[in-house]
């Protein structure tokens, strides 16, 4: 049984085609990324899976349960960390989790609630009112709320947006443990290095359509290009080089090459222009390069 099955999902908001015939499957135990620029349809797709939005056509199933017809079972199987920082100002952290657990019909869930409080580093704040928490702590509680009913499938919609490095690392460590324990993780993020490091497969959405769907390794090697990153002492690149160079920092440029031998003409042009090279490295494309290429092509 697939963890997630989406077949021909379409959704319009007035004139906007938010999703157009989107189909994909995610296997159980996968760590899967759903990437795309703002407005690509990621959150709409997640909302349809969570039952917060109804698709105009198509069908979505979570662990075999249709999100519309069999919504009770489908929702039991799914934990969603929403993008917006929402909280109930009347409740403490522990109460928030106890209530969320109760909404899923789990009225004696103290042991697991304690485990996620510990796992997410919320012990010191367990009895604090939600209003008193920092943004990062509130984000942790959102994650805890999504896990409170031990769902086999967990969707994280931009879980690290506006979160400091320390929390980001501890959060991923916890999510990785859940993935090792068999939970299927579906992630949307604008931090592409997170998706590259964590996810085995990636789908890319643009304007409501899937424009790429493959294993992360295949996507990274799909183009066959190389990137030659050069730091120079002066900014006035000769016109021939300036056309090829992509600025990636202060006096730092990246050149897209087809093979390593193409480094030499770049270096020769710099020598000819009397521009010293402070640093240079040849690298394979990272996910950000691949993402930009795919979005430009699509």
């Amino acid at each position: 049984m697939t963890a997630l099955s989406i077949k021909g999902i379409s959704k319009r908001f007035g004139q906007l085609h938010a999703l157009n015939q989107v189909s994909l499957e995610v296997e159980q135990g996968e760590f899967f990324a759903l990437l795309g620029p703002n407005g690509a349809g990621k959150t709409t797709l997640i909302s349809i899976l969570a039952g917060l939005t109804r698709a105009d056509s198509g069908e979505a199933r979570i662990m075999g349960h249709c999100v519309q017809r069999d919504y009770r079972q489908a929702r039991r199987m799914l934990g969603v960390v929403p993008q917006e920082l929402a909280f109930d100002p009347f409740l403490t952290v522990r109460e928030t989790l106890v209530f969320q657990s109760g909404y899923f019909g789990l009225h004696r869930n103290t042991r697991w609630i304690d485990a996620i409080i510990d796992g997410l580093g919320l012990q010191d704040k367990a009895d604090s009112n939600m209003r008193a928490l920092s943004g990062g702590m509130k984000r942790r509680v959102l994650v805890a709320q999504a896990l409170v009913h031990k769902p086999p499938v967990i969707i994280l919609d931009e879980p690290t947006a506006g979160v400091d490095v320390e929390l980001r690392q501890s959060l991923w460590q916890f999510i990785r443990t859940l993935n090792h324990d068999g939970h299927t993780i579906i992630l949307t993020t604008h931090y592409l290095e997170e998706a590259e490091t964590l996810c085995q497969r990636i789908a890319m959405l643009k304007s409501g359509q899937i424009v790429a769907l493959d294993k992360t390794a295949n996507l990274l090697h799909s183009g066959g290009e190389l990137y030659f990153d050069v730091s120079v002492e002066r900014d006035d690149l000769p016109p021939a080089l300036a056309n090829q160079a992509k600025p990636i920092g202060e006096r730092r440029y990246s050149f897209k090459l087809n093979r390593p031998a193409e480094m030499e003409p770049v270096l020769a042009a710099l020598r000819e222009a009397h521009i010293d090279v402070a640093d240079a490295s040849l690298r394979h494309p990272d996910l950000e390069d691949v993402f930009v290429q795919i979005m430009e092509r699509a």
């Binding site: 929403p82 909280f87 109930d88 969320q100």
Partner: peptide
């Protein structure tokens, strides 16, 4: 308005 309605819309409450 605060957005916390999502917490009662996500669970299997009819």
């Amino acid at each position: 308005i605060t957005g916390n309605i999502v917490f009662v819309l996500l669970p299997p409450i009819s």
